[in-house]
Simulated assay, not measured.
Amino acid sequence: MKLVYVFDAYCGWSHGFSATLREVVARHPDVPVEVVSGGLFTGSRRVPIREFGYVQGANAQIAELTGAEFGAGYERLIADGSFVMDSEAAARGVAALREAAPERAAELATAVQEAFYVDGLSLSDPATYRKIAADTGLDAEAVAAAFQSAEAPHTAADDFHRSAGLGVTGFPTLLAVDGDRAVPLARGRASADEIARRIAALS
């Protein structure tokens, strides 16, 4: 069995789930974790953040329910409403980090969300991935090069296809996958204790 975490780096509820994900991974160190980017803001949804009028209210609710931090850097980044959340670029960045350290994919996914939601760094900027890589002991230039490579858009598309193939319709979703069987452990929000009970029930 492995865990498959399907999220979007620009999804506030995924950011809210980060602490739970880290705890689940810590409790189950022998269970491999695959991280898949879902592609929330692509195509016609790749527009200035002001067009999503619900963002601030949703973030307040996420912070209240999960304790997730929305930092001053993030607030500055989105203040004028012109910032564009591009999930394809974010998926390329997640993939570049994942390629550098596959066994740390869950940790790196939460680091990407912290870079945006706490520090206010654009997930379309290669400098963001250089910083995350350097901060987590990875080769910063190799990660930035992978983010900007000709293959990167295909890798992002593969992630979006994988998400759809798993039947995921909302983020975050945590699945237990064993062969062709995929069992949801969490959709949107769940505690580490709830997830642990669901994992135990599978064995």
Rank of each mutant, 00 (worst) to 15 (best):
R104S: 13
D30I: 01
A186Y: 06
A186P: 15
G167P: 10
G12Q: 04
K131R: 15
E141S: 12
I195K: 03
Q61N: 13
I62S: 07
E99K: 12
L123A: 04
A89M: 13
A145Y: 12
T155V: 15
Y54S: 14
A196E: 15
A156N: 06
A200G: 04
Y5R: 02
V168E: 03
S163A: 15
A156Y: 10
Q56M: 12
V4T: 15
Y117H: 12
T110I: 02
E107W: 04
A146C: 06
A19P: 00
A90D: 10
E151K: 12
E107C: 02
F17Y: 13
V4H: 02
G137M: 04
A146Y: 06
S18A: 15
L40W: 02
V25F: 11
S191M: 03
R92I: 10
G57W: 13
A134F: 06
L121S: 11
D135F: 08
A152E: 01
E51W: 00
A26F: 01
A60N: 09
T136Q: 14
S87K: 11
A106C: 04
R104F: 06
A63E: 14
D125E: 14
F41E: 13
G179S: 02
L202M: 11
S149V: 09
A157G: 05
T136C: 08
A156D: 08
R187Y: 08
T20K: 10
A176S: 11
R198F: 04
Y129H: 07
I132R: 00
A157L: 13
D8T: 02
D80Y: 05
A91N: 06
S122V: 01
L21Y: 07
L175E: 12
P102S: 04
K2G: 07
G12D: 09
V177I: 00
V55T: 15
V112T: 15
A133I: 06
L175H: 11
F41L: 11
A26C: 09
Q61T: 14
D180F: 00
V24T: 06
H15A: 10
E151T: 12
